[in-house]
Computed example of a mutant assay.
Amino acid sequence: MLSRRSVLAASAALLAGPAGATTERLRFGVIADPQYAEAPPNLTLNRYYANSLDKMRAAVAVLNAEDLRFVVTLGDIIDRDIASYDKILPIYRMLRHETRFLLGNHDFDVAPEFLGRTAGLLGMEAPSYDFAVGGIRFVVLDGNDVSLFAPPPDDPRRRLAAERLERAKAENRPNAKPWNGSLSDAQFAWLEQRLAAARAENQRVVVLNHYPVAPENPHNLWDANRLTALFANRPHVIAYFNGHNHAGNYAERDGIHYVNFRGMVDTPDSSAFAIVEIVGDRLEIQGFGREPSRSLNLKTA
């Protein structure tokens, strides 16, 4: 008897054209950095934390009117305090689409006893995972893996994070900031394995992470160059989406589109989110609010 997985794999193979291109129209929503908290605004950074609830309600109304396969939030659902999830997650539950999350640095700005609960609150089985939709494999990374804030206080990854940060400072790298992070060797090996699995199944890959890796920026992962070097040698990787840098950013390198989506939390009343469409050799981003629209050509693997 054919399993559901084998039927889905066969359907994806029929839809796939040469070199992993798919003729299926895949549309999904993207939100970055709602960063909600019941707190006064930070006027210096232009962040209005409490206003994100109304911005999320408005975004949900727009996204619910669209035919989408899922909606992903690229981290920093909250700004601080575990109780903030109690206010914003009910708004996410109003989405009629499948909802995907990944973790940002502010998602760990909670009391130490709650650090291990963050992924579970968001319904995530693990901080890093992957899933396939319509011939595209989405690989979700945990850029907080080796950081000064996400691991428990006595975890050796905190010591490793301190060493990596000091090395970055010694090399005068612009991303030598305590609010950035990096991947463990174990997660990097897992990433290599998932990219190999996607290649074997003739799938193109979109990588999702909270932290940018290109172009060079103070917000980048400490190990950004390690990731871009890996992707450059994987012709089926077509895009990398992230948040964290609220101003947004974009680069094309080795035929890969590195898109930094703008933060929803910024400004008192202007939101930012997007609908992404991938079909054939095109990647279309329809921006809402402060998020720009983009029309991008995709490479063939």
Rank of each mutant, 00 (worst) to 15 (best):
Arg157Phe: 06
Asn260Met: 09
Ser128Ile: 00
Glu201Leu: 14
Asn42Gln: 05
Gln187Ser: 09
Asp79Tyr: 14
Val265Met: 01
Arg290Lys: 11
Val71His: 13
Ala232Glu: 11
Ile136Leu: 13
Ala239Gly: 09
Ala272Phe: 03
Asp76Arg: 01
Asn46Gln: 12
Ser11Asp: 15
Leu141Trp: 13
Thr228Ser: 12
Glu113Ser: 08
Ser147Gly: 08
Asn233Pro: 03
Ile285Tyr: 06
Gly20Pro: 02
Lys55Gln: 05
Pro292Thr: 03
Leu283Pro: 01
Ser6Leu: 09
His210Trp: 08
Arg5Glu: 15
Leu165Asn: 01
Leu43Lys: 04
Arg294Tyr: 11
Val140Gln: 01
Gly20Arg: 02
His244Glu: 12
Tyr92Leu: 01
Ala186Thr: 13
Ala61Phe: 05
Val72Pro: 03
Ile78Val: 10
Glu192His: 10
Asn233Glu: 15
Tyr92Ser: 04
Thr44Asn: 14
Asp81Asn: 15
Leu15Lys: 12
Asn144Pro: 03
Ala61Cys: 01
Gln35Met: 03
Gly181Cys: 01
Ala12Asp: 15
Gly29Glu: 09
Met124His: 03
Gln286Trp: 13
Pro156Asp: 08
Glu201Tyr: 10
Lys55Ala: 00
Phe241Trp: 14
Arg253Trp: 06
Ala214Val: 02
Pro41Phe: 05
Arg173Trp: 09
Arg234Gln: 14
Ala168Thr: 06
Met1Ala: 15
Ala10Gln: 08
Gly134Asn: 06
Leu160Phe: 10
Asp266Phe: 07
Glu192Pro: 05
Glu98Ile: 02
Arg69Thr: 11
Ser182Asp: 05
Tyr250Ser: 10
Arg290Asp: 13
Ile77Met: 13
Ala161His: 00
Ile31Cys: 00
Phe138Glu: 10
Ile91Leu: 15
Ser84Val: 04
Pro41Lys: 00
Pro153Glu: 10
Leu165Val: 03
Gly135Leu: 06
Ala19Glu: 15
Asp185Leu: 09
Phe188Thr: 14
Thr44His: 14
Leu14Phe: 14
Asn105Ser: 11
Arg4Tyr: 12
Ser84His: 02
Leu208Trp: 14
Asn46Lys: 07
Glu24Gly: 12
Pro151Asn: 11
